[in-house]
């Protein structure tokens, strides 16, 4: 497809196990997807499922073992000029805004540096641009002379977003960008992100663990478990998810308006406890409907349900 901005194909990465028994732990296994221009793709999964590693692979912060990543049709994983050109195109926003800043750098300098480093503007012009950026993320200009500790978490996260958009990247990767914030601030940041996306025609890869939050901002959602994508569907159809793991996630949501403590089922395993399987479906030990075939073969993403673009990796579907 011509409007694909980022194409990831068969990306894999394993880490060496830190335990006494040596071995390789696959963090991301054979993940393929594409993000179209102007779209927001959401990735959901529990801790340890490889969603952050995926983001680090795309941004080359961690070298991938195998696979291809293409931006605008050209592969960049093995290109010579790693740093500058790629980060000009891809910017990241992390979970904890406090750890992004140098404690002795003023907010203004932080905003200008990006513009100067990528040689878009001179220092003086950059200072003017910083004022505009602050307005764009709805912060008062006075904050430009402040230091990071004088700002709240929500304000800092706005500054981080401002810097990310300042160099007009084509893709912004938001790795749990709102998870550390209070609910009211979280909503404001999400609204800001949605507005900026529309105004600046941005493309997002939004990574999170909260289904409701990811759904609210994304067009498509991928659900990851143990390094693989187990289901992909459009956000508006999230409730029609078919994979048992997606169902488990959906059932674990606490809604303010409905009391459902009676229908929580006790399972004794999480991903970290269940461990990785050598073969077959990774989820089978936790799965309520595991069959004998699940232990033998790895399920592949196949079309599920009526809606277009809905795929799931489960033998319940492919049968």
């Amino acid at each position: 497809m011509s409007d694909a901005l980022l194409e990831v194909s068969h990306l894999s990465k394993s880490f060496e196990s830190g335990n006494l028994e040596k071995g390789m732990i696959p963090a991301v296994r054979d993940v393929s997807f594409q993000i179209n221009r102007g779209e927001c793709l959401g990735i959901v999964g529990e801790s340890g499922c490889g969603k952050s590693t995926l983001a680090r692979l795309i941004t080359l912060l961690t070298p991938a073992d195998s696979g291809k990543i293409r931006l605008n049709g050209s592969e960049y994983m093995h290109s010579k000029d790693k740093g500058r050109e790629i980060y000009r195109q891809i910017q990241m926003v992390f979970q904890d805004p406090f750890s992004v800043f140098s404690p002795r750098m003023q907010i203004g300098t932080f905003l200008e540096d990006g513009l100067v480093y990528y040689q878009l503007l001179t220092r003086r012009k950059a200072a003017e641009e910083a004022v505009k950026l602050m307005r764009m993320v709805e912060l008062p200009e006075e904050l430009l002379n402040r230091f990071p500790h004088q700002l709240s978490g929500g304000q800092l996260q706005r500054v981080v977003i401002a810097r990310a958009i300042s160099i007009h990247p084509s893709l912004i990767i938001l790795d749990e960008a709102t998870s550390a914030l209070d609910v009211s601030v979280q909503k404001q940041i999400l609204e800001l992100l949605v507005r900026l996306k529309k105004e600046q025609k941005l493309t997002y890869l939004f990574i999170g663990h909260d289904l409701a939050v990811v759904r609210s901002i994304s067009d498509r959602i991928q659900i990851m478990y143990a390094g693989s994508v187990v289901e992909e569907l459009r956000s508006e159809n999230l409730k029609q998810a078919v994979h048992p793991y997606s169902r488990e996630l959906l059932d674990s949501i606490f809604s303010v308006r409905d009391r459902h403590t009676e229908r929580i089922q006790v399972k004794t395993l999480s991903l970290a406890d269940a461990g990785y399987e050598a073969c077959g479906c990774q989820y089978r030990r936790r799965c309520p409907c595991a069959m004998s075939v699940c232990a033998e073969k790895v399920p592949e993403l196949t079309k599920a349900g009526q809606e277009p673009g809905h795929t799931a990796a489960c033998f319940l579907v492919s049968r």
């Binding site: 609910v183 949605v194 809604s255 303010v256």
Partner: peptide, 18 residues
């Protein structure tokens, strides 16, 4: 505070009414 809670059944944010 209650309005800020994002729920799975909420309307998705599209930025249309801004």
């Amino acid at each position: 505070l209650l309005d800020s809670v994002i729920e799975i059944d909420d309307e998705r944010m599209t930025g249309k009414n801004e």
